[in-house]
């Protein structure tokens, strides 16, 4: 039995369109115009305990809706969902006691309270016994280097510091599974690295199942063995990053710096993409001409200073993937 089971999940909203202001609010109560939004059309996947899965998709693809259904906030229109044997929206109080959630754009903590007071309050809310709380808190404070922040009110923390505190807040009750909704959004580079490193350790060392949504492809590259791509409420791919890359990008790039003026090349299956006086950027399909063979062919006829093959960047892979499926931003 997988830890997370999602089958044919669908969610549509009726969104009221109303005029702004109090008059609009009142007339909106009496007479409304509705627009149907299909956030999720048909989504199925499962997740085993200890996995680390990244959810990728453009804005409006249904990522946040999925996280909200998984965390018990929303009730799906149809389909089946179970997390650790519980149906989240039917058994919300029991379910949320066993999961942790971090929203990159929303705080769990009390704005005006010192970090430590917020932790104390959360321990009471989650019914963590004093012993276990102290042990867990000290462990998280050490892992996330929170010691100097504990006495500060949350409103005085930088975004990077606050995210570290948010992670601790979401983990005090020792959840088996962690949902992260864009956890690195707006963070500077060192903070992003710190978050990635922490999530990875959490997953490897404490065996916490992690499901993360993100727009930052470096998050995906650094963290996830498995990627689910969704677009317009449907599952488009569920595979490893490498397989995803080769499935959409038949094409590779080869950069060549010549010792003399760049020649006119004419090799079957190879295209010149850019040209400068002494260098070429070539596009080729490794299925038609493998990289070693191409390199051999070039070096056999020309004097070459430097040569390297480039993997397509993950951003390109995903963008290309949406193009292929015609499912960019909804």
């Amino acid at each position: 039995m997988p830890q997370v089971l999602v089958e044919a999940l669908a969610k549509s909203y009726r969104v009221a369109e109303r005029a702004p202001g109090v008059a609009g609010a009142l007339s909106g109560l009496l007479r409304r115009r509705w627009r149907e939004v299909r956030a999720l059309v048909d989504l199925s996947f499962s997740l085993e305990a200890g996995e680390l899965l990244a959810f990728v998709g453009p804005n409006g693809a249904g990522k946040s809706t999925t996280v909200k259904i998984l965390s018990g906030i929303l009730r799906p229109s149809s389909g089946r969902i179970e997390v650790g044997g519980l149906v989240p929206y039917e058994d919300r109080l029991r379910h949320v006691a066993r999961v942790g959630v971090v929203f990159g754009q929303r705080s769990q903590l009390w704005w005006d309270l010192p970090v430590l007071d917020g932790f104390d309050l959360l321990a009471d809310i989650y019914r963590v016994t004093p012993d276990r709380y102290r042990r867990r808190r000290d462990e998280l404070v050490a892992l996330l280097r929170l010691e100097p922040l504990l006495a500060q009110p949350v409103r005085q923390l930088s975004l990077g510091q606050r995210m570290r505190a948010e992670f601790a807040a979401a983990l005090l009750h020792d959840p088996e599974i962690l949902f992260l909704d864009e956890p690195t959004i707006g963070l500077d580079a060192p903070s992003k690295l710190a978050v990635r490193d922490f999530v990875k350790r959490l997953n490897r060392e404490q065996n916490v199942t992690v499901l993360l949504t993100t727009h930052d492809m470096h998050d995906v590259e650094a963290l996830a063995e498995r990627v689910i791509v969704i677009g317009q409420g449907r599952l488009l791919a569920d595979s490893s990053l490498d397989r995803l890359r080769s499935s959409v990008f038949a094409e590779r790039r080869l950069w060549v710096d010549f010792a003399e003026e760049a020649p006119a090349l004419d090799i079957q299956g190879v295209e010149v993409r850019t040209r400068t006086a002494r260098s070429l950027e070539l596009a080729f399909d490794p299925a038609k001409i493998p990289a070693p063979k191409l390199i051999a062919a070039i070096t056999a006829e020309h004097a070459v200073d430097d040569i390297h093959v480039e993997e397509p960047a993950i951003e390109e892979v995903i963008a290309r993937f949406y193009d292929l499926h015609d499912s960019g931003e909804a």
Binding site: I73, R94, I125
Partner: peptide, 13 residues
């Protein structure tokens, strides 16, 4: 503000 989501994420009424 969506803060009600946070309320619902906690195992209390």
């Amino acid at each position: 503000t969506g803060a009600f989501d946070r309320v619902l994420l906690r195992p209390r009424s």
